[in-house]
Design a protein around this nucleic acid. Structure first.
Lengths: 354, 354
DNA sequence: GCTAGTCTCTGTATCGATTCAGACTGGATC
DNA sequence: GATCCAGTCTGAATCGATACAGAGACTAGC
């Protein structure tokens, strides 16, 4: 049995309060007594106040949760998520706060329980799927949170840091449309929850539940609507899992039909790279010159020459954590939109003459 | 004020224990009463048992700490560390355990405090610097831990998962020595704590405090000793921080002397890539054909054609967490050595004739 | 010499739950 | 009709600390 604070108090012959003060409020007792207490503690092998008991009494924990509303592994698979996490970590470091990564079990009931049981002072919710249930739990717990997507139904004093998804996506699609592409596929993760990999039909973009995906697809659609290509004329492809492999599988066979798309607009760089993978495995002769765009501008995108939309990753994480740990007095300042930029590289080009 | 368990008990007219059981031991009360309790809780907005109070009473927390004995950002800067973390996350996910990333303040006193205050059931200690003090704190707290380096003074039932650093490093150095290189620089992070970037002199390899660095440098030295190049003839270069940039800065000017090294053996891929960066900025004419090796085999290494030593990253993390969360009955099974392999690519070649 | 004020330190209440021995009920068993 | 048992529920003790009002000693000021 580890000694408790009481044991140290007994050993020195002072009250529990005094020992507590020796650790947490050194100005409340004389330096000499404090020295004696700390010595005695060392001798007894007392490791300092129990963090859990301390948290209970103090009413805060000193750590914030980071929620990837998806398999936790996702967080480490997507380089953008890693950079986001790095930003969160940087801010947390500055505030002396720890980061709790909470893995979510597949079943929603269990996942709710996991969020309920997380010992944290607040959450950064990285939106990768439909996270309403998670936000519900967090609200019910009365904990502050910051999400990475603006939601229409958001309370005005709910904080978020995001980008103008629709406008950003529009910039990429307008570039592709400007190159003359008219037969285009849109590739995204979690178009519809539970949908299998591959092409699928959705009546309208507003049917798509996940706000980020919806925003990006809407932006793509906007740009093509401007050149006379309607939603129904776009090929929508689902790649569940947001991995290169998932994307490669999702677009397998996409280019073999009679009038294949000449461009693929992906909802993330990881997916776009997967498309390039799928094309690269074809023999050079049978490799159609497909234009591909990504989203995020991760490190690999530059190496692969991928045209993409850049958004500041570390900054997004840093600001999210900062909004959480040091809330702005003015609620309007709790809504941050970061700038994005279209980065044109080699993966996009004019439509080949057929 | 959020309602407490007591409030729910009062509302339903049962005892606190019963409400507690409704959440934690459903078999201890009738289904109907449990339903009433859960309903009442929902109505009152009770978010379920307070995790901190629960942890205090139960005596465990349900999360494990991951300690990068260095700036937390490090963890996200080094792709190897990220993959390690992914492995830890995977195992944690399987066990329903959360991951606490604890940032360590620069001052040791504060850092000790941070480890003392972490509410966790155990630690995975990823060794990047001298972490003795951290292990001390953990031992004092009586918490289990797994480290990623075998230490000579380790208690036989202290668990670790690592590689044979010395043998692995030897394989890379033997390859380089076999190519004829004799004037060689060894580049490592934290050769001596607090040492500045650049060449430095250390009397012997055993002087190097950090076990991983020491092991790798010893392995390098072994291979050169076999071809008659002694420790004193090797150029030791320090790159504090283990980043590409740190490495590039550390080797700046290294190749401009009268008898510059013809090869650089780096203690990690990140450092090796930094050396390649430093060489790449030189005008092609003034770029000496330096052989460079790394360590870890991160994704970028393949793209850069870096000769390196591969070690299984995710597996290391997975096993570390597994050893922590599900300790083997037999203490000998708590010591895991993973295989490594030399991966020869384009960054190494024969010594140019001068 | 008396009041005020400053330093130290103490005692009690409290944070929000879980645990476990035992009380009670109703039905089955002999 | 007494005994046993399983199924439910309760109450007191407990986890390990912190907060806060206040007690006592001591110095300063008038």
């Amino acid at each position: 049995m580890k000694p408790t604070l009481q044991a140290v108090a007994d050993a020195v012959g002072v009250s529990r309060s005094t020992v507590s003060n020796a650790y947490s409020r050194p100005d409340q007792l004389s330096a000499s007594l404090r020295g004696r207490i700390l010595d005695a503690a060392r001798q007894l092998g007392y490791p300092g106040p129990n963090p859990t008991a301390r948290s209970l009494r103090r009413g805060f924990v000193g750590s914030i949760g980071v929620l990837f509303t998806s398999h936790l592994s996702y967080a480490f698979t997507d380089p953008f998520a890693v950079r986001f996490l790095a930003g969160v970590g940087e801010a947390a470091e500055r505030h002396g706060t720890s980061l709790l990564l909470v893995p979510l079990p597949p079943a929603v009931t269990d996942a709710r329980r996991a969020v309920e049981n997380a010992a944290v002072d607040g959450f950064c919710v990285y939106c990768v799927a439909d996270e309403e249930w998670a936000l519900d739990v967090i609200r019910q717990r009365g904990l502050p949170f910051v999400s990475t997507a603006a939601r229409d139904d958001a309370d005005p004093d709910e904080r978020y840091v995001g980008i103008d998804e629709r406008a950003a996506a529009h910039s990429a699609a307008a570039h592709v449309a400007g190159l003359g592409h008219r037969r285009v596929a849109l590739l995204a993760d979690s178009v519809l929850p539970g949908a299998p990999a591959g092409p699928l039909t959705v009546a309208g973009v507003e049917q798509i539940p996940h706000p980020t995906t919806r925003g990006r697809l809407a932006g793509f659609a906007d740009a093509f609507a401007e050149v006379g290509v309607g939603w129904a004329d776009l090929t929508l492809v689902n790649a569940p899992g947001n991995s290169r492999q998932a994307a490669a599988e999702a677009v397998a066979g996409l280019f073999d039909g009679p009038a294949p798309p000449t461009a693929v607009l992906a909802g993330s760089d990881v997916l776009a790279l997967g498309v390039l993978d799928a094309l690269a495995v074809r023999p050079a002769g049978a490799r159609p010159p497909i234009s591909v765009t990504g989203f995020d501008d991760v490190a690999e995108a530059a190496a692969a020459g991928l045209t993409t939309v850049r958004q500041p990753a570390e900054e997004k994480g840093r600001i999210a954590a900062e909004l959480l740990l040091d809330p702005p007095a003015n609620p309007a300042a709790g809504h941050v939109l970061l700038p994005t930029a279209l980065v044109v590289r080699d993966s996009t080009g004019p439509v080949p003459r057929s």
